[in-house]
Computed example of a mutant assay.
Amino acid sequence: MKKLAFALFLISGVVFSQEMKIVQGNFDFLKDQKEINTEFDYSNFTMMKENKPEAQYVEEHKADLDKKAKGNGNLWYKRWAVAKEQIWTPKFLEIGNIVMTKAKKELNFQEELNTPYTLIVQTVWIYPGWDAGIMKQPAKVTTNLKFVETANKSNVLLEITSEEAPGDQWGNNFNNETRIGEGYAKTAKSLSKLLLKKAFK
């Protein structure tokens, strides 16, 4: 029992491994802003420890699932194809805004806004994690977060990297897509807390 408890402690410790780094810029432009246009870039990320392109991961995972039961690969892919718009993006926006609201700040992140500044959330790397009941590994999401001028997106005002944001929930979560979604939620939570500390101190 002690060995099991220690193993679970080690696994849970991974949850706190996220690292956010300020690459360039400052937070001054955010002080008077109430809304930030937000865009999500899923166009060029890699997956797994081997840094596989998304397309390669999808084909291999579909094939593995079909070996277990024919047709399961396509069933999974239907969930994967909509996860970005239906799980990952909403999770980021929802949790980021909740943190700001709880801190009584008006700054709000939404898509398709006509605002002076835009946050570009670029996905760099994803590890989906796994859940085998008593043992599990959280998902991990690495992103590049760029605040740019909406009218001139080559003008980067603030750039932050978020490395290996953990995605997990209490209890069991056997769905890769929702585990990854929790990684985006953690990214947004950490970003909002950083903004509260640096821009609204």
Rank of each mutant, 00 (worst) to 15 (best):
M20I: 08
F29G: 07
K67I: 08
G25N: 03
M20A: 13
S17G: 15
F6L: 15
D32M: 05
S17C: 13
V15M: 11
E35F: 09
N44Q: 10
L65R: 10
K21L: 11
G73F: 07
K91N: 10
N51P: 05
P90F: 07
M20P: 06
Y57Q: 00
I11T: 08
I95R: 10
P53T: 00
H61E: 11
A7G: 11
W80P: 02
L30Y: 04
Q18I: 14
V14A: 07
I36E: 00
Q86Y: 12
G73L: 07
N51Q: 13
Q18F: 15
S43N: 03
W76I: 13
V14L: 15
Q86E: 12
N26G: 06
T38N: 01
E94A: 09
Q86S: 12
S43P: 14
E35L: 02
Q86F: 07
Q33T: 02
N26M: 03
N37Y: 04
P53S: 03
F92Q: 01
D64Q: 14
Y57R: 11
K62N: 06
L8C: 09
N72W: 08
F40M: 11
G73A: 08
D64F: 15
W88D: 02
I87Q: 05
M47G: 00
I11L: 15
Q33C: 10
W76L: 05
W80G: 03
D41V: 01
V58K: 01
L30K: 00
I87E: 05
G25Y: 03
Q56D: 10
T89Q: 13
F6Y: 14
D28K: 13
Y77D: 06
K21P: 06
R79E: 09
F29D: 00
D41R: 01
L75M: 12
A5L: 13
H61R: 14
R79M: 05
A69P: 02
F92R: 00
K31Y: 01
A7M: 15
T89K: 12
F27H: 00
V14F: 14
N97F: 06
L8W: 08
V58S: 05
V15P: 04
F16Y: 12
P53Q: 05
H61G: 09
A5H: 10
V82N: 10
A83M: 02
V14P: 07
F16P: 08
K67W: 08
V58Q: 03
E35R: 03
G96A: 01
E60W: 09
N72L: 11
T89I: 15
K62I: 15
A63N: 12
I87S: 05
I22Y: 00
I36F: 04
R79W: 07
V23T: 08
I95E: 07
V58T: 07
D41G: 02
M47W: 00
D32R: 14
K84Q: 08
A55I: 12
F45E: 00
I36Y: 03
K67N: 11
K67F: 06
Y57C: 03
Y42S: 04
I98L: 14
Q24I: 09
V15A: 12
E60G: 08
D28S: 12
F92M: 01
S43W: 02
A63S: 08
Q56F: 04
E85N: 11
K62H: 03
Q56M: 11
W76G: 05
V15N: 14
D64N: 15
Q24G: 12
